[in-house]
Computed example of a mutant assay.
Amino acid sequence: MNRPLASTGWILVTTLVLVLAFIPFDPVLSTRAQALPETIVAFNRMITDFGTFGWMIYLSGLVLAVAFILRRAVRQAPLQRRVRTVRNLAAYFFLTIGTASVLVHALKFLIGRARPELLVDLGAYSLTPFTGDNLFESFPSGHSTAAGAFFGVFAILLPKLRWFFFALALVIGISRVIVGAHYPSDVAAGLLLGLWTSLMVAFLFAKRGWLFHADEGGWPIPKRSGSRP
């Protein structure tokens, strides 16, 4: 197996460690987060839906479609190259976010963890798989997965700002605990699932020479703006 691909197993290991670390404290942390001052809770209600898949998928899909149309209409090579870059960027976002959405919803359905609003009735560790009921789709957090994928793409494309984008994803994830939609372990799993997806799609693109090239160690590195997309 390719060494960089194999070494991304650290994301899986980190996910497992964080989930296992948070699980014993999920009820206490969730309850305390929801009991924060109303101004903090209100702010988090305002920002939390930034982590929805819908607008991300539709926007990147629209840009992708427009880029395909423009490339067919454009004849001049330099402009074609720019349009191709826009197309590949949109495709990277679209495939990353779309794949993350499929994965997280499959896991939600298979695991069936009850949400924090059922804490009193069922406890924090109730699993009812295959229901398709939103109340039993707490793990992993979908919003956190979307944020991890979206900001993970930016972090890979703009590595100098990596920690800034990681922080933004974390803010969205924490908001899901504060508004009472998820437990901390749900958020940890979602953020890392989204990040892992963005990295895997980057490996796929680097293999095809789209947006990225592989460095000496095989890791996907963004191409310079002047290079061929």
Rank of each mutant, 00 (worst) to 15 (best):
F151M: 10
L16I: 13
S101M: 15
M46P: 05
A124K: 07
V63H: 08
A149S: 14
Q76K: 14
T96H: 06
F43D: 05
V74S: 00
A6R: 15
Y58V: 14
R208E: 10
V201C: 03
T96I: 09
S138C: 11
M56V: 04
M46G: 03
L64T: 00
R3K: 11
G152D: 04
H213P: 06
A214R: 12
L192C: 05
I156C: 05
I11R: 00
V102G: 13
N88F: 12
H143R: 04
S144K: 14
D49Y: 04
F205W: 00
F109N: 11
F50M: 13
G152V: 04
I47R: 03
I111P: 04
F130A: 13
L95I: 15
F22V: 01
S138F: 12
V63Q: 04
T197I: 07
G9V: 12
P159Y: 08
S7D: 07
S175H: 00
V171W: 13
W10C: 03
L170W: 05
F212I: 05
L20G: 00
T145P: 07
S185I: 05
T197E: 04
I156Q: 07
W210K: 03
L170S: 11
V102S: 14
A65M: 11
P184D: 03
V86S: 04
W196A: 14
W210H: 08
A167N: 02
L170A: 10
T85C: 05
W55K: 07
F94V: 04
Y183M: 01
R113I: 01
L12A: 15
I23W: 12
R228N: 10
F205R: 05
G180H: 10
K160R: 15
P129W: 10
G194L: 02
H105P: 03
L119Y: 06
L29M: 06
R3S: 05
I111Y: 13
F68E: 09
S141M: 11
E38T: 15
A65V: 11
Y125Q: 00
A124M: 08
G123E: 06
D133P: 07
M56D: 02
G180Q: 15
Q34A: 06
A90G: 15
A91I: 09
T99V: 14
H213T: 07
F212E: 07
L79N: 05
S144R: 13
R82E: 01
A146H: 11
A91Y: 00
I23S: 07
T8F: 09
T52V: 10
Q76D: 14
G226L: 07
R81F: 03
F43E: 03
I40Q: 08
N2L: 02
I57S: 12
F25D: 07
L36H: 09
I97N: 10
G9Q: 10
